[in-house]
């Protein structure tokens, strides 16, 4: 079927065959070094990965998002009988809203990267001249975006349920991406580092359970050592920032500080995820 013999092609060097015997160390100065193809730059590559990942949402992610939202709403309904308004109600609503982010960004992203790594799908990205950060950030940003509607629905339902003001719900615009970055980075790192996809799924579920236990339950009722664990969970700071805004006169400096911590953890966890990607791509 092949109609073009190699000899007639432009630049087809028959001499190659002879030179082959000299070994690799004969760098004859005349040998042409090919110009490398273009490299994909960070932002365009990130945008391309983001768009591709977002398009996957239409197929499979929307039902899962419903699950995440109903789960959080269900938890709030359950907690209504336990907490008695005030600070605890704020913590429950904020925690449940951020839980949607944790479910999608941490749990689902860990599963996605775990499966991608195990099935050899990472090879596709690894053989493209794309910065690792673009793949990780693009996927993480897409997964964090899936969570936006669910988080808002949960927050509104929760506020109505516990008679909290809807005034400052706009803070979610900052909370979702920052908590999302922190949790998605963690999820991607877990998925990429887990030696087997089952373990990646398990780690994602564990992270999700931790977010549930440490984020939703009012901190005052937790034992001391669990409270320390709570401080280690990146989503906690998002929850705290959000919970503060329900107050009659929010302490904006504290909100900003919490969001700052969230952003810092986000940068760190995305950096770890990028490192994990490099490690998983070249074995």
């Amino acid at each position: 079927m092949s109609v073009v013999p190699a000899e007639v092609l432009p630049g087809a060097a028959r001499a190659d065959g002879n030179r082959a015997d000299h070994g690799p160390d004969t760098e004859d100065g005349g040998r042409a070094v090919a110009v490398l193809g273009p490299r994909a730059r960070l932002w365009p590559a990130l945008a391309a990965v983001y768009r591709a990942q977002l398009s996957r949402a239409r197929v499979a992610r929307i039902p899962l998002l419903f699950v995440a939202t109903f789960q959080s709403v269900g938890i709030m309904v359950l907690m209504r009988g336990v907490v008695d308004g005030g600070g605890e109600a704020r913590a429950v609503v904020a925690g449940s809203s951020v839980l949607v982010v944790a479910f999608v960004a941490l749990n689902l992203l860990a599963q996605y990267f775990g499966q991608l790594r195990a099935s050899g799908g990472l090879d596709h990205y690894a053989t493209l001249p794309v910065p690792p950060a673009a793949v990780v950030l693009g996927a993480a940003a897409a997964y964090a975006s899936f969570t936006v509607p669910g988080t808002f629905v949960t927050a509104v339902v929760g506020s109505v349920l516990f008679q909290l003001p809807l005034t400052h719900l706009w803070i979610l615009v900052a909370v979702v991406p920052l908590a999302g970055a922190a949790l998605a980075g963690l999820g991607a790192a877990l998925g990429l580092l887990a030696p087997r996809p089952e373990l990646a799924t398990l780690l994602g579920q564990l992270g999700m359970s931790a977010a549930l236990l440490l984020g939703v339950l009012p901190p005052g009722r937790l034992p001391t050592f669990v409270q320390y664990a709570r401080d280690l969970m990146p989503s906690t700071y998002g929850v705290e920032a959000f919970a503060r805004t329900f107050g009659p006169d929010p302490d904006w400096a504290a909100v900003l500080l919490d969001l700052g911590v969230c952003a810092g953890v986000g940068v760190a966890s995305l950096a770890v995820a990028t490192w994990a990607y490099r490690r998983a791509a070249v074995r």
């Binding site: 730059r41 990965v49 493209l128």
Partner: peptide
């Protein structure tokens, strides 16, 4: 299209 963009187009 995505692969093309990731190849630097």
């Amino acid at each position: 299209e995505t692969t093309g963009r990731l190849r630097g187009l």
